[in-house]
Amino acid sequence: MSARATRRATGEPLWLRALLMVIGLGFLLLFLGVPLLAVFVEAFAAGWPAYRDALSDGETRSAIALTVLIALVVLPFNVVFGVAAAWAIAKFDFRGKSLLITLIDLPFAVSPVVVGLVFLLLFGAQGLFGPWLAAHEIKVVFALPAMILVTLFITCPFIARELIPLMQVQGKDEEEAALSLGAGAWQMFFRVTLPNIKWGLLYGVILANARAMGEFGAVSVVSGHIRGETNTLPLHVEILYNEYNAVGAFAAASVLALLALVTLAAKTIVEWRMRHETQRLTASDLPPEKG
């Protein structure tokens, strides 16, 4: 069979290619591109000065700061948990693995409003630990701790989900080789495992970050909405909108979209380097296993 015939058989004819691209890209444009554009159009509806004023508002700034702070606190926990969970799940076999993975997936499926409610039921004044916390003057709900907790809940699956398939594909031989050469456990982890998963880890961090910054429903329930204090950027957007300040609201929303786009751009770079590295790896280190 000639090379040309093979190519024809394994690739789509030109018209089909074009059709698929039109459908696929049209779908993305309709569902993602147009809404994104609309956010920016609303934000700039009153011109650049109004946009700048909206963003230089003190409460908007403190909302941005709080949003970034929460993301910064949440991500390290996510990293430690994600790596630990992926290590246990990908490198070992044990009973109940499906159940464990399902538990990790569960936060995807819980309605954000319910997530907030759940933490109120635990830590609120009428909740399980509420009276004890009040007696010891520890503030959890309507303060930073609860906002961090719900964000941890929401973002819990991302890094683990990213790492599990990656680590499963990588297998355990490299680590075992390191051990047999006399490396200690931590040495093995930092010298062998971490370099192998670093790009996947970063990819997970970026997705979790986007979700952490954008979360509205769950945080809304436990925030208390104190201006300049416990309002995150998504909450602030809603408040501004409800107060008939559309420009302010969409300006703040556009900041979130920009934060997202920045993280997305970072992710694209990460992905590219990851692919680059994998190619190098598969090209040089693992040729026998590829067959």
């Binding site: 109120l120 609120g124 004044a125 009428q126 909740g127 509420g130 009040a134 709900v141 309507f142 208390g224 909405h225």
Partner: peptide, 11 residues
């Protein structure tokens, strides 16, 4: 929503 928050411990 606000009074629920007060009942749940918003000071």
């Amino acid at each position: 929503k606000q009074v629920r928050a007060v009942a749940d411990g918003l000071d």
